[in-house]
Design a protein around this nucleic acid. Structure first.
Length: 433
RNA sequence: GCGGAUGUAGCUCAGUUGGUUAGAGCGCUGGUUUGUGGUACCAGAUGUCGUGAGUUCGAAUCUCAUCAUCCGCCCCA
């Protein structure tokens, strides 16, 4: 029997897991800073619940199995479970409802670079009854901005667009029946050459002038305000287009009002998002210098979250950070501060077995002071003990030997500076706190 | 689901036109006299060369099959 892990499942060494957990907790704290309440739903759901919304592609990727007579599936995102949750508990919830959820999701796809079969999603969503104010779309930008700033990551940009714009534009060209296919193609424009793009549009049966108009439209660029002016100057009368433009203007204006730096937010008319339940604002986040990472945080606004489960209307807006992919890509590019192997602040080293009593006693006292410590019980040469301390990267060493036992003091060594002091208990606590 | 590549120590890889006991670096273990580390030096362990079959006097090297991994496409975090 050889030990191995299923492909597409990430396992980390302690020094990596510490960084991963730190990132997870920064994300959770930031979400709470913006007033999102925690939510946890089961990894397993009834297959009929999870499959209720999905189209062909996601359905193929869902892990599904039978236990007895029950068809069970593993969640492939956190949005469908949220929809179920809202449908079940909307009478007990207070709206606007803001929740965050950080959990593992499962997709049985072919793993490739940055693709996992089990991965963490860190979601936020704001849901309201009947109608959700557009300013929330700007708040979502603020959350993304704050999270990525606090994580201390490379320069990033949040790209936004509004689906009503392109939808309305296609209506104005009288090709609204091709919307889904066109959106999918537009989403690929950065990946494929222009001729290929135009070729595929021809395959959809688009006339030459419409192809050119569409291409010109999605290539509109510049500063956010310049793009908005250009869109206004198109003078398109379509109702959807006008509404989309209006929403986009509000989101940009409120983002500015929230104090978000202009260089981190960019309107990009080619961002559409594949998922067809988005109806308004859409977001994607990329690192300026690492576009190959793909989008590390994306989402958008949807009109009706729980429509498959009930008649009531619950519009919402939300995003998801793919933490597993984000971590994996950062690690592969040496962009993570991976050092410590231990959450301990200090390691207590009794010189030999004669001083174990003092060491145990001290460990108890320090832990009562909320200081994480460990004792090196394994007896070996002092040099080995030092090597252990080095390897786990513990910041302080407390040495207890004959001198210390006699004086009731403790030798405390700072492992970074090499400086060593003999301290009384209260001084020691002060140093370690 | 479709297409392309690769499998040699824990990791990254070398291995010449098939030729004796398969190598390097990093890591790991131990040592450089027994209360002070990260460096340096010395020594050591580790492989059915992915698996199975075939060709051959002889296979890590050639052929076939199989499994696994990686990379595109699709879709997406």
């Amino acid at each position: 029997m050889t030990a191995r892990t299923l492909q597409g499942f990430m396992e980390l060494l302690p020094q990596e897991q510490i960084v991963f957990n730190h990132m997870k907790s920064v994300i959770a704290h930031t979400y709470e800073l913006f007033g999102f309440a925690p939510l946890d739903t089961p990894v397993l759901e009834l297959a009929e619940v999870l499959l209720s919304k999905s189209g062909g592609e996601t359905e193929k990727q869902i892990y599904e199995f039978k236990k007895g007579d029950t068809d069970i599936a593993m969640r492939f995102d956190l949005t469908v479970p949220l929809a179920k949750y809202i449908a079940l508990y909307n009478n007990d919830l207070t709206f606007p409802f803001k929740r965050y959820q950080i959990g593992k999701v499962y997709r049985g796809e072919r793993p490739q670079k940055g693709r996992f079969r089990e991965f963490y999603q860190c979601d936020i969503d704001i849901i309201d009854r009947d109608e959700l104010n557009i300013v929330y779309d700007a708040e979502v930008l603020a959350v993304i901005y704050t999270v990525f700033s606090k994580l201390n990551l490379p320069k990033f940009k949040i790209y936004i667009n509004n689906r009503k714009l392109l939808g309305g534009f296609l209506q104005s060209l009288d090709i609204a029946d091709k919307t889904v296919e066109v959106l999918r193609l537009v989403d690929k424009i950065k990946k494929i050459p222009e001729e290929a793009f135009l070729g595929e549009l021809s395959d959809l049966g688009l006339a030459e002038d419409k192809k050119q108009k569409l291409l010109k439209f999605i290539k509109i660029n510049g500063l956010n305000n310049e793009i908005i002016t250009q869109l206004e100057n198109l003078h398109i009368e379509n109702e959807n287009f006008v509404a989309g433009l209006d929403e986009l203007k509000t989101v940009i204006a409120q983002a500015q009002n929230l104090g978000l730096p202009a260089e981190n937010i960019q309107i990009d008319l080619s961002i559409t998002r594949g998922l067809d339940y988005y109806t308004g604002t859409v977001y994607e986040t990329f690192f300026d210098d690492y576009p190959q990472f793909g989008s590390v945080c994306s989402g958008g606004r949807y009109d009706n979250l729980s429509s498959v489960f009930m008649d009531k209307k619950f519009p919402g807006v939300g995003i998801s950070i793919g933490l597993t992919r984000l971590f994996d890509q950062l690690r592969a590019n040496n962009l993570l501060p991976i050092k410590e192997l231990t959450p301990n602040k200090a390691l207590i080293i009794p010189q030999d077995d004669a001083f174990v009593n003092e060491a145990v006693n001290l460990a108890g006292k320090l832990r009562l002071q909320n200081i994480a410590v460990d004792v090196m019980y394994r007896q070996c040469k002092f040099k080995k003990k030092m090597e252990y301390a080095n390897k786990i990267g513990v910041p302080f060493l407390i040495i207890i030997g004959e001198e210390e036992a006699k004086s009731g003091m403790f030798a405390c060594k700072n492992m970074t500076s090499g400086e060593q002091k003999t301290l009384k208990l209260d001084e020691l606590i002060e140093t370690l706190k």
